[in-house]
Every structure is written in structure tokens, then in C-alpha cells.
């Protein structure tokens, strides 16, 4: 099953260690994400999922180990550093500003100014262009069920807000999108819409890391499943090679998978 591939991982972590006092978050943890795939990160509470993801998004700095984006070694000190390298994170807490409208939220922190003296001297925002492009990126993702792009985000449902957050992450030439429990706060229909959004992002060539506790959703959308256990990678499997209960067994340590039965290279 293991095929040798020359594809370079877009995100690679080698022997990451991170401890909080005497609590070990990551112990020589490895991780690879290949271009254009969805990798799900699953694991029991305390397995180091969040710590791994926070290291990759710059929210935490690992004690030791290497991280590479597109083959280039990176040292993230803040989430802005990772964003500058094309790694966007969508947080569980729906990090949008409710009173601002959809287009203002999409462009929050990277507003476009008008050309010429209006933009350089008077710092005038090009609202027309931002609205047009915001509309375009929501259309591209097929999430435009909103009445208007100038609707404030607080008037949207949880699923629509999450769609805005995901669209925001995917809209700015980012290469990697990290989604932390994107459906945790959503209903069934809304979750389905967000999963579709994830597939659409992948089909547009983006690489996605999905952290989720929801096994059916993981098996629905993931190309590969990274199982985290006791601060390290226990196995990488695919929805085809293993069943949901196998994955749970790996998570809890009841089952181990020999390396030659794992899927350490991309399937796509």
C-alpha cells in the first residue's frame, strides 16, 4: 500500500516536543500534510491534538523539533507569522466580529485601500472592491445564502458565520487551512454545509487540517486520518483501510498498526 512519492509535504513537523511543566503535550511528534489533501487529526482528550495544532498555527512555540512549510524551515512566534506563510486557522470560537458586516469581516486586518491619493493620504477604504471580491469568494464556495454582503454577521446563523470564517481563511491565497472543531457548535444541516465547504476548498487545491471528535464526519471528508496518542503520532490510516472502531482502538491504544499498513504518503 505504501507508494513512494516524490511529492513534498506542504506542512511537515519533525520530532516536536512541548511540555507544560511536568505535563507532556508533545513527545517527538511527527506530522505531514501533503498538498491538496484533507487530513483529519483525531485523538483522545490530552493526546496532544490541540498542542500540535497550536504549534503549527503559531499560537504555541515548541520546545524542540523542526517545522517546515513547503520545505522551508519556519519558526512561528505568533499566529501572524503563520498567516504570513499562508497558514490560516479557523477557530472553534467563531472568531468573527458580530457588528461588522460580511465583507468587513472577510477583510478584517487586511483591508484594501483605494488607489491614488485617496488611499495613500486619506487612507480611504475601497469598500466597493472589497464587497465585490467578498461576494465573489463566497460565491466560489457556494455559501451565498446570505441576503446581502453588507449584512452584519450577528444576523447570520451559526453555520453561516462559520462559512464566513472558513471563506475568510480560504480567501487570501492561503495554502493551508486549519479547522479546529468547525462543526462543534452547529446543527446537522449546518455541519453538512461546512463539510461541503471543506471539500470545495480541497478541490480548489487547498490543503486542510481538520481537528474533530466526530468520527462520521472525519470518515466522510478526510483523505487520511492522523491518530494522535500520548503526545505522538500513533498511526496514519485512511477511511478505506480502517473502520471507525479501528480508529477508536488506535486512539485508546488497544490496537497498533505496523508501519507498512499505514498511509504515510498522500493518497491523492
Amino acid at each position: 500500500m505504501t507508494t513512494t512519492s516524490t511529492t513534498q509535504p506542504i506542512v511537515q513537523a519533525k520530532d516536536l516536543n512541548k511540555s507544560f511543566g511536568r505535563v507532556i503535550g508533545l513527545a517527538d511528534c511527527n506530522f505531514e500534510l501533503y498538498p491538496g489533501e484533507v487530513i483529519a487529526v483525531v485523538g483522545d482528550n490530552g493526546a496532544g491534538k490541540s498542542t500540535l495544532i497550536k504549534c503549527l498555527s503559531g499560537a504555541l512555540t515548541p520546545d524542540s523539533g523542526e517545522m517546515h512549510i513547503d520545505g522551508e524551515e519556519v519558526f512561528f512566534k505568533s499566529t501572524n507569522d503563520s498567516r504570513a506563510k499562508g497558514v490560516e486557522t479557523v477557530y472553534q470560537t467563531l472568531a468573527v466580529a458580530p457588528v461588522l458586516d460580511i465583507s468587513e469581516n472577510l477583510y478584517l486586518g487586511r483591508e484594501i485601500r483605494k488607489k491614488g491619493i485617496l488611499g495613500t493620504v486619506f487612507r480611504s477604504l475601497d469598500k466597493k472592491r472589497m464587497r465585490k471580491e467578498a461576494m465573489q469568494s463566497l460565491n466560489d464556495l457556494g455559501v451565498l445564502t446570505v441576503q446581502s454582503i453588507t449584512q452584519s454577521v450577528e444576523t447570520l446563523s451559526g453555520g453561516q458565520r462559520q462559512a464566513v470564517a472558513v471563506a475568510r481563511a480560504g480567501a487570501f491565497g492561503s495554502k493551508v487551512v486549519i479547522l479546529d472543531e468547525p462543526t462543534a457548535a452547529l446543527g446537522v444541516n449546518e455541519s453538512a454545509r461546512v463539510l461541503k465547504l471543506i471539500r470545495d476548498l480541497r478541490d480548489r487545491g487547498m490543503s486542510i487540517i481538520l481537528i474533530s471528535h466526530n468520527m462520521p464526519q472525519v470518515f466522510d471528508v478526510a483523505d487520511r486520518i492522523h491518530v494522535q496518542r500520548l503526545g505522538r503520532r500513533a498511526a496514519v490510516v485512511t477511511p478505506q483501510s480502517h473502520q471507525m472502531n479501528d480508529v477508536v482502538s488506535i486512539m485508546t491504544g488497544a490496537m497498533t498498526v505496523p508501519e507498512d499498513q499505514q498511509q504515510l504518503t498522500p493518497v491523492r
Binding site: R83, Y91, T93, A95, P98, L100, N105
Partner: peptide
């Protein structure tokens, strides 16, 4: 942009921070 940021910070500082 500064004005938008003033509104965003007043509305939800955590979300504003995560937005960069």
C-alpha cells in the same frame, strides 16, 4: 481601516486579535 478596527476591538477583542 483604523475605524473598522476600532469597531472590531470594541465588539469582540478576542476575535479581533485572532483576525490579526
Amino acid at each position: 481601516a483604523w475605524g473598522t478596527h476600532v469597531y472590531a476591538v470594541g465588539d469582540d477583542p478576542a476575535a479581533a486579535e485572532l483576525s490579526g
